[in-house]
Design a protein around this nucleic acid. Sequence first.
DNA 1: GCTAGTTTTTATACATGTATAGAAACTTAG
DNA 2: CTAAGTTTCTATACATGTATAAAAACTAGC
Lengths: 222, 222
Amino acid sequence: MSQPSAPRKTPGRPARISREDIIETGRRIVTEEGVDRLTMRRLAKDIGSTPMALYHHVRDKEELLVLLLDDYATRTMHRPELPADPRERIVVAASAIHDVLAACPWIVEVLTADDLMSTSALWFVEQIVGGLMECGLNPERAVHAYRAIWYYTAGEIVVRTAAARRRAADERPTYREQVFAGLDPSEYPRLAQVADRWAPLTAEDTYVVQLRALVDGLLLTR
Amino acid sequence: MSQPSAPRKTPGRPARISREDIIETGRRIVTEEGVDRLTMRRLAKDIGSTPMALYHHVRDKEELLVLLLDDYATRTMHRPELPADPRERIVVAASAIHDVLAACPWIVEVLTADDLMSTSALWFVEQIVGGLMECGLNPERAVHAYRAIWYYTAGEIVVRTAAARRRAADERPTYREQVFAGLDPSEYPRLAQVADRWAPLTAEDTYVVQLRALVDGLLLTR
DNA sequence: GCTAGTTTTTATACATGTATAGAAACTTAG
DNA sequence: CTAAGTTTCTATACATGTATAAAAACTAGC
């Protein structure tokens, strides 16, 4: 029998940096100077290493960003008291995920990650799926319903923060504004009717209201 | 009075390439060789110009991709016969947008564009907003409801195609798979219950089903 | 025709992610 | 100790988007 308690060292050159070092330094750069300043060279320099050394601990920069988001979520997502009513519990849990992610500025580069759901967010997913099943959905429908909630949430965040970024970076009127300005009322009567209110209306944050509608629709017994 | 019909030339060096040239050549490269092959240098070479010359006709590469998506949508989105029932019309119009975008492989790099909605897609937006109002929503609620549909649609496409790309690029098991494999059933009973079915379930295409639920929920009179 | 002004194009340069090759630093077997 | 094997790190190189500065090609005013 082998002795697993022996001070067994792994062969090979000992690592001078760890994934944790990378995440920690990366977090510092991002929080202090913004995600734009996070480059592999800068990170390597701050860590006292070389750019390519990082690649032995993370697959690429996208994985690094996912890890940083994970780290951020773990530090930020504390489990709240959830309502007893399952329908309300679904809404509150989804909103909790939404709010944490929406507050994370570098989200867009990463949110396309299907498997983003970090361990810390799993508890919320559990609550949502559990709530859906408690409301009468079978497991299959509950998973599909959860996915719909996730699609809606991710889409809201991605579209909204990308739009905000674009507004900040460019003073020119958006393409959308130009299109709406030159709208032919005879061909697009409904859009022309709301054209001047479109921008303020889409700027309003109605995430929760529409989430409620989605949940209501998902729970309809048809 | 000035004579606008006179052959009035603009001052300055005459352009040798046009935005249309760029879009046309870009489309050819993308369709023939894929979006990965579309680089500013390659595009310039094919067009017989230099990379930086392109930047007088498009702001940056992202705008070029938006233009290409717009071009693609214009060529692809033909107005179908829509059902008379407004609720069904909403579903069919949204599905039409979804299907066209989902079939576009380079979508993810661009779909974060809030103002992506090209002129050719506006007709579908008109149908959706019109259908919502016909179902009794006032203009404000109709716009918000349309946005919810758009968030859901964009989120579905972004998350799904990004996941597909990641699977294609990497043979390793995803992070999500690892997390689900090591799930503690006592802490996450619902997730553990569906853990082995999660991957096939999320692979199913239930866009339309969940869209119907969303529309139903948005139209509930509460 | 010449000059000034305007627009487009070109040349050059830089920052960035990352592929590749090999050197360095360790463990283990003999 | 030496040799082989393994892992990590370093140096170099390349592709890419794009900033900057200057040259080129035109029109309009004189």
